[in-house]
Every structure is written in structure tokens, then in C-alpha cells.
């Protein structure tokens, strides 16, 4: 699984990184973004809805930072 480290970045930065990384992921594969900005909790699922990708869910990275997981479906 590709993981983007967006700790310390504020929105829309983590979402921009997510959009940039998407073409490098095979359809059906997972892409995760670790982001401590509180807006990411809402904006990663909203980005998935707007861009037709699947939001898999939220997990915790080893340091406790939220990790949002996305599946490329198109």
C-alpha cells in the first residue's frame, strides 16, 4: 500500500498530494494518507465522493496520527 506522509500539512495540501499520487496506483489498489490536520477527516471522504474513488476508512499510524485509506476504483 502506498502511504503519503502529510503530517504537519494543512488542507488542501494532503488532498492535493492524494490527487497527485493517485495515477501511480493501480486500479483496485490502496492509497493511504497520514494527516493530522482536522479537516482531512472530512475532506478525504469528500474527495473520494467527488472524484469517484472508494473511501475505505480511518486507521491510526504507529505514532497515533490518523491514516485515511482510499481504494482507486477508476
Amino acid at each position: 500500500m502506498t502511504e503519503l506522509d502529510c503530517r504537519g500539512q494543512v488542507c488542501p495540501r494532503p488532498i492535493i498530494e492524494l490527487a497527485r499520487a493517485l495515477p501511480g496506483v493501480a486500479i483496485g489498489d490502496l492509497l493511504a494518507v497520514v494527516a493530522d490536520d482536522p479537516a482531512a477527516r472530512h475532506d478525504v471522504p469528500a474527495w473520494c465522493r467527488m472524484r469517484g474513488q472508494e473511501y475505505v476508512g480511518e486507521e491510526s499510524a504507529d505514532d497515533g496520527a490518523p491514516r485515511y485509506v482510499v481504494r482507486r476504483v477508476s
Partner: peptide
């Protein structure tokens, strides 16, 4: 958007609706 709020929290209205909070 959070970057325009003194609290740096995004709008609770947009969040509750599942809407994009940035931009």
C-alpha cells in the same frame, strides 16, 4: 474552511453534511 477560522477547525456545518471543507 479551517484556515480561515480562529480555531483552525473546519466548519461543523460542512463536516456534518459530509461536504468538502477546504476551498
Amino acid at each position: 474552511s479551517a484556515c480561515t477560522a480562529s480555531t483552525l477547525e473546519p466548519s461543523h456545518v460542512l463536516a456534518a453534511m459530509g461536504a468538502l471543507t477546504h476551498g
